[in-house]
Design a protein around this nucleic acid. Sequence first.
DNA 1: GCTAGACAATTGCATATGCAATTAGCAAGT
DNA 2: ACTTGCTAATTGCATATGCAATTGTCTAGC
Lengths: 249, 249
Amino acid sequence: MSDNGIEAVKLDGTGPVYDQIRRAIRDLVLNGAWPPGTAVPPEHALMERLGASRMTVHRALVQLAREGLITRRRRSGTIVANPPASHAMLDILSIPDEVRQLGQDYSFEILSRRDGRPSPEVAAGFELKRSEQVAHLVTLHRSGGQPHVLEERVIHLATVPATAAERFGTTPPGDWLLQHSLWSQAEHAISAVAAGEREASLLEIEQGEPCLLVERRTWNQNQPVTAVRLLYPGGRHRFVGRFGPYGAV
Amino acid sequence: MSDNGIEAVKLDGTGPVYDQIRRAIRDLVLNGAWPPGTAVPPEHALMERLGASRMTVHRALVQLAREGLITRRRRSGTIVANPPASHAMLDILSIPDEVRQLGQDYSFEILSRRDGRPSPEVAAGFELKRSEQVAHLVTLHRSGGQPHVLEERVIHLATVPATAAERFGTTPPGDWLLQHSLWSQAEHAISAVAAGEREASLLEIEQGEPCLLVERRTWNQNQPVTAVRLLYPGGRHRFVGRFGPYGAV
DNA sequence: GCTAGACAATTGCATATGCAATTAGCAAGT
DNA sequence: ACTTGCTAATTGCATATGCAATTGTCTAGC
């Protein structure tokens, strides 16, 4: 990985210098200008380029590393990290991984797909404007042959144009998105609902059985990326997370 | 708030100095030796006491401030912060606050209480050893007169001895604990369950209706503090959280 | 008593400097 | 080819120093 456009690093003159540096690099990463694996220029180079002292550059990079955006190793240098797979309580989880971790075979099936303007129902369900171009997908994930979770998703074509050409033949939409987009904000909602008729039949449970509904929307730099509703058959599933409010204890 | 025992700050000689300082102070806070509001010695004092340079002390304090453990203001100095009320996705939430935020009257009722060794059922439900002394409480929270959430909780008497003398006449157990204990680790699990007979009648819903079950256990420095199961009538409730994996965008 | 202003304590930020630790890559020797 | 060891690039850590910004507190003057 060679010398990646150091000239792209630009300070905006507002606030402390170390924070300007931090934000400049963060934005390059979130914009996709520096995709994962890209070599971040070494401290000396940034120092010269920006006219700041090495300690100031260092401070910015250390903080970015703590935030998980970059990975640093002595001598090897600094590279842009892979996007985090999980965070705190709720994860942008990869359903295949999740299933395989339980030692089950994984498979999925796209039940329906429609690209273009959302139907009124879809627009309402995901709080979309009717004018926004999206791909609308319904996917059933299976674990060891059994229905695992029912996924309904919209992907914003303006934000992730590559979606239009993707068939999702081997990789389910969620995983594919992790590789083809970035997110900087997410919103989650969790609730318990009773399975409706159609959901029950797809998930092979009784109508009215409790299900865990996870709704998630993600943005990258205020642009919507995707919104998804995951319906997990109740009882069989739970979300677990462990964390502390402070640094590791 | 006067000069609080600076001699209590002790380094352990392992790892970087700035991190030793950070941990030393963090432990004093989490131990309760420096309760919220306590004045943390100024950088100069710590610098002399510890034989470190001011920048090194500074680095430790800045990091503690970012973690939310302390609050710093120029000239005024540094004080131990109040414990955080919420975090990321799921909060150590105050049920009264939550209810009032919705503009409803709040009330609660302790349905049962038993202190001492847990019964076999309780021990099993909360993964306790039979020998651990706990207070076991069942509380119903009401919102505008209507049942809001059913809470079943154990509090470890060894960790929070003040519990034994508390009647919970005006403050429900969760809120009382926030004022009388600290936590450094929490574990959450969320699942959807069908209301059982007893739960349904207490929550005034139909048996079998979907409910959101939140199970939470908290520790302070590896000592268990409390474990709680909150059963929310489905449909009426959802948890929402918004966050980014990186620093504020 | 009250106010304006000076003073000083405390944190925030940046720099310059030096050394330590790690390790990729190269060179030398077998 | 394979190993061994050296060198240098890069990050990690700590120090010393200086100035800026904020704001309690005190003092002088009214």
